[in-house]
Simulated scan of single mutants.
Amino acid sequence: MTKPTGAPDQPPYLRIAGELRRRVAEGELAPGDRVPSTRQIAREWGVALATATKALTTLRLEGVVVARPRAGTVVASPAAPTAPARRRPAPGPGSGPATDQELSLERIVRTAIEIADAEGLAALSMRGVAARLGVAVMSPYRYVPSKDDLIQLMADAAYGERGYPADPPAGWRPRLELGAHTLWGLYREHPWLAQLGSLTRPLLVPNLVGHGEWMLRALDGHGLDPTTLFDIHLLVYSHVQGLAVHLEWEAHAEAATGQSEDQWMDSRAPALTELVDSGRFPTFTKVVGSFENGYDLRLDALFTAGLNALLDGLTPLVEGRTAGATAP
């Protein structure tokens, strides 16, 4: 366990921030390098997660580090220490330190989204949100009663970041494609979003229902009975969400293990060799052996290929019902 450096009368978070600041100043951590996560700091220094969060928040407000979506907290570039990782709708007063008087529900929700984008949903806590905003621990509770309520608000805000044109494209298929690609883009920007809700216990927030409204309107008027129409909507949605959940899983696994996807696969080479050499799986062995440089898992390509195949399969159902409905 590392002991925080600095004056012994300093709060632990300031001593931790001082040690990380020293590592940056002396070149141990270069611009773009990941700094220890809140969990790594808590484990290394033997402090609470809230203390770790406060240390990183201190450095962020100083411009020493910056949160990067899916990369975590990294050393800021001297040229642009506070450059945002992604353009988003302006959050209003800004995301810097706030007094309790300046605090608002919008700022709390936007700050929580920034934490989840950069560090994953597991790193989100009400205490961490308060620390990043620079307000008292209990202040956010005046606006939102619990973390669960906060996540609902985060989801609604994130789903509301993208909408649809007032004049939709012609044809049911282009409309479904636009809806699916819009959702995929949101999950790409906010990987934690796909972890919320399921087909059996859906997330009922207005802006997600708005995406469903777009998909249902694309299918309405084609002679489909309500059950079939809704089944098709769920099939398309589950394809998008089903692939998107792997975005957050991979980010979490990389943060937990310190290994990239390729590094993890390399470390499992002996297990793969054992399976191939067993002779029990000849087709698997033939396919795997045909890759010159290994299989490149491309989620974006899988999403597009799967969507096209799904819509190809649905075309006779949708257009066949339309033909039947319009026949004399």
Rank of each mutant, 00 (worst) to 15 (best):
Y143W: 14
P165F: 10
T304Y: 08
A50W: 12
G27I: 12
P36K: 07
H246M: 08
L59G: 01
W214F: 06
L49C: 08
G294A: 02
A130Q: 01
V109L: 08
R15Y: 07
R107W: 06
P328D: 13
P206C: 09
S139T: 14
D156I: 09
G221P: 01
G179M: 05
Y141D: 01
M126I: 11
G306M: 10
R60M: 13
H222V: 05
Q259C: 10
L121D: 09
P328K: 09
S260F: 04
E19K: 00
H233Q: 13
L203Y: 06
H190N: 14
V276I: 15
T227P: 05
A136D: 14
L317H: 10
L193P: 03
L272D: 12
G128F: 06
M215G: 00
I16E: 01
P89N: 12
H252N: 10
G320C: 04
Q195V: 10
G120S: 07
L302M: 15
V245S: 05
G320W: 06
Q259S: 12
L193Q: 10
T326W: 11
Q40A: 15
A158K: 00
A155F: 09
Q241F: 07
L183C: 08
A166C: 00
E28H: 12
S290Y: 10
V24Q: 01
A180M: 01
Q101F: 11
R321W: 09
W45V: 12
A123L: 11
V64T: 15
Y13R: 13
A17H: 03
V35N: 04
T228Q: 10
T111P: 00
R110D: 15
V276C: 05
V74L: 14
P145S: 07
E119L: 13
V240T: 08
A327D: 12
T227A: 15
T73W: 11
L302F: 14
P168E: 07
L153D: 07
T57D: 13
Y13Q: 13
G223Q: 00
P78C: 07
A166S: 14
A157G: 00
A256D: 15
H190C: 01
A30C: 11
W184E: 09
F303E: 02
L229C: 03
P174F: 07
D312Q: 05
G179S: 11
S238A: 15
T285W: 02
V24H: 07
A123K: 01
T304V: 15
P328W: 10
F291Q: 09
V240M: 05
G324C: 03
M265W: 14
D148Y: 03
Y141L: 03
I115Y: 06
G242D: 09
L247T: 04
Y13V: 09
A79D: 15
V209P: 01
R268P: 00
A269V: 08
A244M: 09
P12K: 12
G197S: 04
L229P: 03
S146A: 03
E274I: 00
P11G: 04
R86S: 12
Q259T: 07
E248Q: 14
A55M: 04
S267K: 05
G306T: 08
G324V: 01
V35P: 06
G197M: 06
H211V: 05
A98H: 12
R173D: 02
T38C: 13
G289F: 08
G92K: 01
V205Q: 00
R60D: 13
K286H: 14
W192Q: 03
H222C: 06
L103Y: 04
P84M: 05
L302I: 07
